[in-house]
Write a protein that binds this DNA or RNA. Structure first.
Lengths: 333, 333
DNA sequence: TGCGGGTGTTTTAACGTTCAAACGCCCGTG
DNA sequence: CACGGGCGTTTGAACGTTAAAACACCCGCA
């Protein structure tokens, strides 16, 4: 493996000149630059990242803790990881994976990785209500950015990027309304979840703005399973005035609702319009396809990396809009 | 951030002695070791990984290319990544994620990461039939290990770990047979897939061994979707002698079959027993739960890391058995 | 008393890179 | 012709660690 020294000898210049050829080519006379580049090419030289990092004390690696919540499915994690990798690579960086206990118990792991200079900073995700990691990292002055807000805190300790769930569900409501729906229900999670309340608020406000009813049209599911979604749909359809549209908080709940609708001999997209959230792979694999709110993963990842690697002045809080992907579950054909 | 030098000064020993305290404590006199350790503790010293890697030319990082096949779902990728991370960490290593074009086009990326000393080696997955990456890496002498065999090659270029798909489907057949099933069908993929043919062979051989029929009991699906699975099930159930058991190549196909069975008013697990493959999160989220073959991710990951980091002498090919997770789709109750 | 040998510690040098300062050269100017 | 200044290049030192060799010390033994 060729080193800077060998390239320098081959090109008959000093070591520093070769270094400059790579890091500050404008400093070299064009002919020198050409000669050095030829030697680099010829010797197939690749700079040693460790030596560089040692000198500059920047490793160009970003830590990401691979989540392991056995009780919740990560159907879009591969999309997120791919986008995050790609965004990091576009700035010459990479993603380092690690595992850590959830919550504050895992913080020593973060600290250690940073102190040993394995990573420059962290991308957090799976943010929980009152997530303790933010304050901890902030206090230790470890760079980080969060995918997801810390709910129910007056001031959020650090920068974040998130998807505007309320705007998303409002989008779904307006879409269903445009397709002629007039009683649009919401299937969500318990009120303790900030994310769930956000999405529910979007649904409620949009309905109110359109003069649509909302009372008696919410069901809170304790679990994120098909059965829970199906049961919620059953509850709604058995009510005195059954809905003709359902906005579900997740794709899994929406699929459950679809199943229940089909089981009753109703046709999804015709008798009842249904929307999900996340545009997980499942949405495209069922029939009719599930209309769902796609999180703009590429934009999210790009924002995360930008904020982490060269933090702009001022508040670093980005709220991105999800995109409604329309399929058969909300519109026939 | 404290350095070795500062710890040495604090403990009134030489720098090398502190290094030894960490890497070869048996060389120190117990009282010196204690003194050094106290200083390490006191100064909260953490060794700088870059300096270490520069000196030893081992980065303790393993590259893994995050797959992006838009047409196939990665429902168990998070399980795999978590297991891989944990296994790597148990040897003091970590996983570095990157993206690369599929196939041989991506090889320069692998080469670059290795040449710049960002990683020591690679874990491959998503192995394709006649995967060209293996030969390429072998030729460049870049350490790697593959999760998945290279099918249809007389000699595989490098070490691998894989799940015995044939043993898995055989397990499923024997399970269904034990529950009284006598006509067990197989829903798979096109014959061009080595993985699919392996799993089909396991089904066929197990049926033959149990004197069960196999002719006319295979359907090859072009896609891995619920619809394809449902259509395959419909085809089988419409046949002259409909099956009472179905072994599906994937969870998605199995779920499709379940849907079709339910649609016909039949009861999964009672009228027809169904099994899937991978034990993806979906299997546990539907009702009845889907009986499925779980890949032993922790064992797989441990083997991968072991083979990569200290390769045992002799052939390094590991075939691990999947585990049948029984749920309602194959056994009532 | 001197010598070989083990044990524990220190010294020296190196890993491959970049930063900061120094250097040499050429050119325009007074 | 001396001088200042810009440009392109080189020199020296440092980043924090570890391998290998050198060293100091103590002990047992001749």
């Amino acid at each position: 493996m060729a080193t800077l020294k060998q390239v320098a000898a081959h090109a008959e210049v000093s070591v520093q000149t070769v270094s400059n050829a790579l890091n500050a080519p404008h400093r070299l006379r064009p002919d020198t630059l050409a000669r050095v580049n030829r030697s680099i090419e010829l010797l197939n030289y690749r700079p040693n990242r460790n030596a560089r990092s040692l000198r500059t004390s920047a490793v160009e690696l970003i830590g990401y803790c691979v989540p392991s919540w056995p009780n919740r499915t990560h159907l879009v994690m591969d999309q997120f990881l791919h986008a995050l990798c790609a965004a990091a690579e576009s700035t010459g960086r990479h993603i380092l994976l690690f595992t850590a206990p959830p919550g504050v118990d895992g913080m020593p792991v973060y600290d250690d990785l940073h102190a040993r200079r394995l990573v420059d900073g962290f991308v957090l995700s799976q943010t929980e209500t009152r997530d303790p990691r933010h304050g901890w990292l902030k206090e230790k002055q470890i760079p980080f950015v969060s995918f997801g807000r810390v709910w129910k805190e007056s001031t959020q300790p650090g920068p974040w990027v998130d998807v505007d769930g309320a705007a998303g569900t409002a989008l779904a409501v307006r879409h269903l309304h445009g397709a002629g729906r007039r009683r649009i229900a919401f299937i969500g999670w318990p009120k303790t979840s900030g994310l769930a309340e956000d999405r529910r608020a979007g649904w409620r406000n949009a309905c109110t703005a359109l003069d649509l009813p909302t009372t008696g049209l919410t069901v809170h599911c304790a679990e994120d399973t098909l059965d829970a979604g199906a049961q919620a749909a059953a509850e709604l359809l058995d009510g005195p005035q059954p809905p003709d549209g359902i906005v579900a908080l997740s794709d899994v709940l929406a699929l459950g609702a679809l199943r229940e609708i089909t089981r009753r001999g109703l046709v999804p997209g015709v008798d009842v319009g249904v929307t999900g959230f996340d545009d997980s792979p499942l949405a495209d694999v069922v029939s009719p396809g599930l209309t769902s709110l796609r999180q703009p993963m590429d934009d999210i990842a790009a924002e995360l990396i930008t904020i982490l690697t060269d933090p702009p002045a001022g508040p670093t809080e980005r709220l991105l809009l999800p995109e409604l992907v329309v399929r058969g579950s909300s519109a026939p054909g």
